[in-house]
Design a protein around this nucleic acid. Structure first.
Lengths: 196, 196
DNA sequence: AATTATAATTAAACTAGTTTAATATAATTT
DNA sequence: AAATTATATTAAACTAGTTTAATTATAATT
């Protein structure tokens, strides 16, 4: 893959481990660039997730459809975040989640078929992925805590504060889905906040 | 540390990566055995978590006290599970969680001060920890999904099915806390289930 | 500019789960 | 065995958030 396009990924990795120029080149030979249009799916529930994707530009939502066909958004990914169904990726079993682009989106893809080979050639990346997954796990646990201990209003305020960029880019009903509340109730919360 | 006592940990690690006898010995020199009594704390909210603990026997609860002093249990750990506040451990900042023993508990401890050294001596362990944290992250995400899409009754049934051993070993009000509901409501759910 | 589709607001009726408080049942301690 | 402490049950009043449905605003399309 083209080095210039991959620069945000290389910068991101170098925050965790230092790659030599040689290693950067090996990395480039292992990754693929891909562009998706707004609305397109990167992964569909039921498919096996073959890639871990690093978002260069654009925005995706990762969501789950329950038995009643209700959509539950579990995360948004923008620039410098990851998009994949990790459960499906690591076990190569059907995905629980859909990942769909909310904007035109440019990605770097790591393929399941070559990632072991990549770890063998650049063992440092094993360390890198360990570290980012540790962080993701911690964030996920903290979200469970918030779900338990905050009211819907406080969860919304936390979201606004933590991800102001994301709130600007997506419709409000998706924020509600991410928070696990109805769009009507989020609307009510916002109108109450406006009066304070 | 004594090899015989560490055997469950070695067996557990060998499910992910194969350690040579030499590596097993290095590992043993890096880990510590410790016994806690029922009621003792392994980590307290506000302290920095210095160890990642592998449970050899016994049972712990990891919980969070909110502003009103309410306890929210986020996980239980029994034999062959881990107990630590990973957020605190990886950043060496004050812990959000308490970890307390619900039974007399025997642990193997990995210390923050030597874990980098251990990774350097046995790079395979970086891979091992990456893999187990991937699994923990996936489990955490799935729990968020369940919180969103299942009723309290269905979450309880899921818990019963997934962790029948744990349900036998802990009081019911702790199950309720883990599920994020009140003990009174869990009691109601159980009496409804008894009628079905 | 008019039309259609998408997103957001409002409000009333409803329900899953909470709160409070009293009672019952185990389990421990003396 | 009696007394104390911890755990579990039950029920009534309550509330945070849902459902349904109608209305308005915004954006996209012709």
């Amino acid at each position: 893959m083209n080095k210039q396009k991959a620069q945000p990924l290389i910068d991101y990795i170098n925050k965790y481990v230092l790659l030599t120029p040689e290693e950067e080149n090996i990395l480039l030979s292992f990754i693929r660039f891909r562009r998706y249009l707004k609305g397109q799916y990167i992964v569909q529930q039921g498919d096996v997730c073959k890639h871990e994707c690093f978002v260069l530009s654009g925005c995706t939502k990762t969501f789950y459809l329950d038995e009643e066909g209700q959509e539950h958004i579990i995360m948004f990914s923008i620039e410098d975040w990851w998009a994949s169904d990790m459960g499906s990726f690591i076990t190569q079993t059907p995905a629980d989640f859909n990942i769909q682009c909310l904007e035109h989106t440019e990605l770097v893809m790591f393929s399941y078929d070559t990632i072991e080979d990549l770890y063998a050639k650049i063992p440092k990346l094993e360390r890198f992925f360990r570290q980012i997954i540790e962080k993701a796990f911690v964030a996920s646990q903290k979200r469970i805590v918030r779900n338990f201990s905050l009211t819907a209003k406080d969860q919304y305020l936390y979201f606004k504060e933590q991800y102001p960029e994301i709130e600007q880019r997506i419709p409000q009903y998706m924020v509600a889905s991410y928070l696990g509340i109805t769009k009507e109730f989020l609307s009510k919360i916002k109108s109450q906040l406006a009066l304070e």
